[in-house]
Design a protein around this nucleic acid. Structure first.
Length: 464
DNA sequence: TGAAATGTTGGGGCG
DNA sequence: ACGCCCCAACATTTC
């Protein structure tokens, strides 16, 4: 007769390559739980994903998942006490709030004679292990990745799914639906058609990407109408797949230029978590403090136009509408819409951060914070502030055939490529022929690119 | 993982 | 043949 141990699912909603679950299953019968902690801030689209992911997880363990909501520490202690459990397993999270919480939980449980066992299941390299020779953290990606990560221990090899886990149940618990992760307004139903959720879906998506998307990745990943990006980010966020599984899925012959480039994107994910770990203010505070004096403007109407995809710049609007419709934006287009918000509308990156947080199915504190700071120019190893994307040129360059823009801005679909990214320059007759009335069916540009670019550059001069 | 301004070069038209 | 201008094409600098 083995003891019952508790396994606490968090951002690791999978059975394969799950070090905590693997160990737990070797130590006794497993009580698998999920707690929706009331201190966690989760965006609406991400809640939708979580709702579905928990259902998939529950199905994969024959409905043994026990679900709770409230204060993690209190709940854990209560479960352990009322079920005579004296050992708890979980995989670590690396966000500041979690780190702080976990420390307290560990202390609380230990002082109640309950053992705690935690593992790394979500990072290839733990942030505290990668430091410069002067034992301070890296602040630039390339040396972090090349000299730090790649010269350090090779990533842990993925574990198989534990066999024959003995699950135990308790009575009187919530079901996944009781967590109320879905909004009562069914706005999220539109997302259903775009995503398959859960561990199996993540594995399939990786497999498809390796066979159909990886070849030519380095160059083709910049084109939003091509299928050369993995779209694994939401699966990674909830740990339906581990970075280790992705890392080791590239066999030696796949590690060419394209493969290296793809793996380095995992490196950027590591870098974001690394920065967040060493600089816990990253989500809120400019990494480069000189940006604290930047003369941001805030115009509610301009911001709304950006959110709704009504800026009058087709590639920007396509991106913002992709976000609203699908919960996702292609990475190239993320940079374009973000640059437009921060450098043409001169709106603080916090506003963009918050909108993305609510709308993205892959909303992730580390990646979202680091990436907005990158675009704004305020981050570590960020894009220089004066690098300002021109949405016309970016559209012409990266959506050459216009397929992406036409898909999300259908009111312009009959416009020839020549004018697709600058419809206000099209001859009157052509616009009429295409039934496009600018200012009603599609907006005129809400700001002038040249003018706002000048203001942005002059503002930057002020803070230098 | 920029874009615009400025500088340089070289071919062709022309007197 | 030569100088001059124009300007596209490319390179470099600047923001």
């Amino acid at each position: 007769m083995s003891d019952t141990v508790l396994f606490w699912f968090r951002q690791d909603l999978r059975l394969s390559d799950n070090p905590g679950l693997y160990k737990a299953s070797q130590s006794g019968s497993v009580l698998p739980i999920y707690i929706l902690d009331d201190k966690l801030d989760i965006g609406a689209a991400s809640k939708w994903w979580l709702h579905n992911s928990l259902h998939h997880l529950n199905d994969s363990i024959n409905k043994h998942l026990q679900v709770f909501s409230g204060d993690s520490a209190t709940i854990l202690l209560n479960i352990c006490k009322s079920n005579q459990i004296n050992s708890v397993y979980w995989n670590k999270c690396y966000e500041p709030l979690r780190i702080e919480q976990d420390k307290k939980i560990q202390h609380l449980l230990n002082t109640n004679n309950i053992l705690t066992n935690s593992f790394n299941a979500s990072l290839l390299w733990e942030p505290q292990n990668i430091l410069k020779s002067d034992s301070t953290p890296y602040k630039v990606f390339t040396p972090f990745y090349r000299n730090g990560c790649l010269q350090s221990d090779i990533p842990r090899e993925p574990l198989s799914k534990p066999e024959n886990i003995q699950f135990v149940d308790i009575i009187d618990q919530y079901s996944v639906d009781d967590l109320n992760l879905l909004s009562s307004i069914p706005w999220h139903v539109k997302l259903d058609q775009y995503w398959s959720i859960g561990e199996l879906a993540a594995q399939k998506k990786l497999y498809n990407f390796l066979h159909r998307g990886l070849s030519g990745y380095k160059q083709k990943r910049n084109y939003p109408s091509k299928n050369n990006v993995s779209r694994l980010s939401p699966h990674l966020h909830y740990g339906e797949i581990s970075p280790n599984q992705i890392w080791y899925s590239l066999s030696a012959e796949l590690i060419d230029q394209d493969g290296e480039n793809f793996l380095s994107e995992l490196g950027w994910r590591e870098f974001s978590y690394y920065l967040l770990y060493h600089f816990p203010d990253l989500p809120n505070v400019n990494f480069q403090t000189k940006f604290n004096n930047f003369p941001w403007k805030f115009d509610k109407e301009l911001f709304k136009a950006w959110q709704k995809g009504q800026t009058g710049y087709p590639i920007v609007d396509a991106g913002m509408r992709e976000l609203w419709q699908t919960g996702h934006i292609h990475n190239r287009v993320r940079m374009i819409v973000a640059s437009f918000l921060v450098k043409n509308l001169l709106i603080h990156w916090h506003y963009g951060r918050d909108w993305f947080w609510d709308c993205l199915v892959d909303a992730d504190l580390a990646s979202n914070s680091a990436s907005w700071q990158w675009v704004a120019g305020s981050g570590a190893d960020a894009a220089p502030y004066f690098r300002i994307f021109n949405p016309i040129i970016q559209g012409e360059k990266f959506d050459t055939d216009g397929d992406y823009t036409r898909r999300f801005v259908p009111e312009l679909s009959s416009l020839p490529n020549e004018y697709l990214f600058k419809p206000w320059e099209a001859p009157k007759e052509l616009l009429e022929k295409c039934s496009i009335e600018l200012g009603s069916i599609y907006p005129l540009p809400i700001v002038d690119l040249k003018e706002t670019r000048e203001i942005a550059l002059n503002s930057y001069k002020e803070i230098r």
